[in-house]
Design a protein around this nucleic acid. Structure first.
Lengths: 211, 211
DNA sequence: TTGTTAAGCGGAGGGTGCCTCCGTATCTTC
DNA sequence: GAAGATACGGAGGCACCCTCCGCTTAACAA
């Protein structure tokens, strides 16, 4: 907040609206058509002129970055919501599952993201920070509730998560990761006394059909 | 239905020549201008028509892949040459240094490469194989000469190498990696008897500021 | 309200690069 | 040397990029 304390006009409502629209459209278009998708298509889908798009996001990379940031933020907010859930372990599991989806939609954009990260390490710092906090908060709650071991740091959790997603290209990776996460979360869980928690529970028959 | 086993014509000399020219030009142009560089520029630099370029490499990705393959091959051949060197430890060091250069030129193309790897795991397999063999052969010679410890696999070597290059973005990474490699190669070296090889050599102050 | 004005909007248009297509040139084979 | 097969070049049509500017509209002051 750099208050130019003196008199900054309120930003125009239409500008705010259009910016949001463009972001929404960009998310859809890029997810569908990859990072090469036409910016003109984005503008059209957003229902704004191409000039408007360029004013808000002078380069394709700016647009990428904004879209990505927004999604990270949404993931962060999801964690906020899930904090209210009854079962904190389940909440963590849910969040991780959403994060897998998030990674999945980034599939085709990996390359673009790599570039963005390279040119703006601030972006990397920002997202790491947000995600670490999100995962840490959920984990913290589960620990506080005495349902999860405490000797794992949020950073470790995040690293484990990304590590699991690293297999990325293999077909069916997504369901594989979901399975691994189940195992992982179970592993984090503090068993109520010596009760050896029947892992038999046939872990949801194939969370997702592969394709 | 290929194998017209009978009678395949010899490929035309000019076609072979042009293909090679295009590859050479592409390497230069991409290294200079990144993976977005204009294919027309490549054709011009190669001194061929744009049509010729497209006939040999129907898509930009095909061209990328071919350039990359070629460089891997050259690295592999370099290892071949270095096998003849007198000092096998030095030979390994040299090769690693060249490999750093190789990675350096790929800097801007990382994203493109990631894509290529994704769409053709054969490419990944090929290059891993070649590089592993190259590094393994040099290492093997040094081991055979009794100058290097033998309990490290070529895969480990390669992994260590890539790991070191992972820091990529930080400024000055290249010299940092070269320094690390020096240390590493020294570590691999079998000391001639108990002679504790003065590591005192004041390892350059501050490999890297933390941030 | 109404008037003023900065902020924002749209999209035409000039430029660049992509890729196809085909008449021409060159090479291999017999 | 002749006959094909093969490869060549680059014109041309198209898609997309991005800038520029006259018009519109929202915010603020009176």
């Amino acid at each position: 907040m750099d208050d130019h304390a003196d008199h900054t006009r309120k930003p125009r409502a239409d500008a705010v609206r259009n910016r949001e629209r463009v972001l929404e459209a960009a998310k859809a278009v890029f997810n569908a058509g990859g990072p090469e998708a036409s910016l003109e298509a984005v503008a059209k889908r957003a229902g704004v002129g191409i000039g408007t798009l360029y004013r808000h996001f002078p380069t394709r990379e700016d647009l990428f970055e904004a879209v990505y940031r927004r999604e990270v933020e949404q993931l962060s907010e999801l964690a906020e919501h899930l904090r209210g859930a009854k079962d904190p372990v389940e909440a963590l599991r849910r969040w991780l599952q959403s994060a897998v989806e998030f990674v999945a939609t980034k599939k085709g954009m990996l390359a673009a993201l790599a570039l963005a990260y390279q040119s703006s390490s601030e972006l990397a710092a920002f997202s790491m920070d947000r995600l670490t906090k999100a995962i840490g908060s959920l984990h913290g709650r589960a620990v506080a509730a005495g349902q999860m071991r405490a000797d794992i740091s949020p950073e470790d959790l995040l690293r484990a998560f990304f590590g699991m997603c690293y297999m990325h290209d293999q077909p069916g990776w997504q369901s594989s990761v979901l399975r691994l996460l189940d195992v992982f979360v179970d592993g984090l869980r503090l068993q109520p006394a010596g009760k050896a928690r029947a892992r038999a529970k046939p872990a949801k028959p194939a969370v997702k059909r592969k394709r």
